[in-house]
Amino acid sequence: MRLACGVALLVLALSAAATKMDIPADAGFDVRLKKLESELRCLVCQNQTLADSNASLAEDLRREVRELASSGKDDDEIRAYLVARYGDFVLYDPPLKRTTWLLWGGPFALLAGGAALWWIILRRRERFGKLAPPIADSGAEARGRALLDESGAP
């Protein structure tokens, strides 16, 4: 019973502490947090940002970000704090390194491959176009014209 009371008191104290947490009444601070949170991914609902998500983990992480920021940490330090725990996946703008070069370079490689293919095809078409012999069989041409005239003029 005493334990239960103790726990209840602790919970009350914690919730009181949470509501009384000194939040700087500074609009610039909120804007900065909002911007930072919208560059971070929520791990529970993976296609939502930390700013948009209602998941309870996102709430906790927003609280953590706010506290880190109020304690004077800059954006890079806060990002590093989250990356150390959740990995590069929390960043919507992951750094370029060995494990992410395919992610960053892949689209450009595909674009370059497509451009090369396009160029090859164009060149080949041009070459074959030049080499294509004119219609040598004048008889065939005459027959073709006759057919066109026949169908064109009733």
């Binding site: 602790l10 919970v11 914690l14 791990l43 529970v44 983990l57 906790d60 992480l61 953590e64 725990r85 959740y86 990995g87």
Partner: peptide
Amino acid sequence: DLDGRVGIDYGVYG
């Protein structure tokens, strides 16, 4: 871990 702090340190998300 009442407030989930240690969970965050361990990168718990599910």
